[in-house]
Write a protein that binds this DNA or RNA. Structure first.
Lengths: 182, 182
DNA sequence: GGCTCCATGTACCATTTGGTACATGCGCTT
DNA sequence: AAGCGCATGTACCAAATGGTACATGGAGCC
């Protein structure tokens, strides 16, 4: 089994089972290899965790780039953006919040994640707000609020599983933010 | 040392150090007792975690009750509410998100937490939205969005530590939601 | 004083942990 | 065919883990 496919399997395992109690052996068994192999390919448990984080980050960046590369009209790009913000995190479900909590505690394997979670998303969001016609001095606050609301709704969704309620709130978010806002 | 003060110390320890890697012995040493005592008072590690969760829940409920008991004008109560939602979670910082992630994964010590995180907050929030004059059919969505945004901003704050940026977004949230909304 | 009960300390246990040493295979080049 | 290097398996280690057994203290009650 190649290193890359091991990594992909490990990410999937974490997404399903969380990080908390994951020992090298339990991960290895779950993804059909030996704990010896994980050490061999990733050096240590920390090394594996760091790679998992890096993978999650990269996938978030890829999704973001995909949105920005479209040339939809601003309004639709905006909506697509909100959807992506949620989807990007939803892929990994609880893992997203678990990793974030680790980042908040400055745990070693999340060194790069902390800045990434905000910096990767915020600037393009501000840009989108500007393109949507918001005044330059208010765009940052709108962007920040939008990002926050998206993440909060994701939180809500993961906890309750109530897609309908979240969709409704999400639609409201779009309405508050969209056309000639305010 | 009494059971209650042990519990309080344990909560504080978790808030500072996270749950992930906390062994009974490391907790015990950190709060100045022996791991034997923790087992004695809480039965098991799971028992201790469950009690910690219960404590966090209870403190959130107390804070909420405090807000609802005031008879400020609606607008101010509203603002107080937003602030409390953040503060309530901020007390425990990353622990809030770590526990939430555990709840999303249905981990045993968070059985009651899952429902609590939404159900305790949402109904009174809807009530507040109604009192603020929002149409009945839209109040739930507003409440849900507001709760989500507050939590997202908390997330943001814990990650970046950038109080100013979060305050700005928070003010925007209040503006979008307040007077004769929309 | 003697008894009991709760609190605490010491010592121990089997299991699991991350990590290592070493042997073995399998595919490549020469 | 010989040799080499990467991949993998087996066996092992010291340390730490959650939990238990048992002894000991010390305060209150008879």
């Amino acid at each position: 089994m190649s290193r890359d496919s091991l990594l992909a399997d490990a990410v999937e395992h974490f997404a399903k089972n969380g990080i908390g109690d994951a020992s090298l052996r339990s991960i290895a068994t779950s993804i059909g290899t030996s704990h010896r192999m994980l050490i061999y390919h990733f050096g240590s448990r920390e090394g594996l965790l760091a790679e998992v984080v890096r993978t999650v980050e990269q996938q978030q960046r890829d999704l973001l780039a995909e949105v920005l590369a479209t040339d939809l009209p601003v309004a639709e790009q905006n909506e697509l953006f909100w959807r992506r913000v949620t989807e990007a995190a939803l892929i990994y479900g609880p893992l997203f919040f678990e990793l974030s909590a680790h980042a908040m505690q400055d745990m070693p394997h999340t060194e790069s994640l902390k800045a990434d979670l905000i910096n990767v998303w915020l600037p393009p969001l501000i840009e989108l707000c500007l393109r949507a016609g918001l005044p330059a001095d208010e765009a940052p606050a709108y962007a920040r609020l939008g990002l926050a609301a998206s993440r909060g709704l994701l939180f809500d969704l993961l906890l309750t599983g109530d897609q309908a309620g979240v969709d409704e709130a999400s639609a409201l978010l779009n309405r508050l933010f969209s056309p000639p806002v305010e």
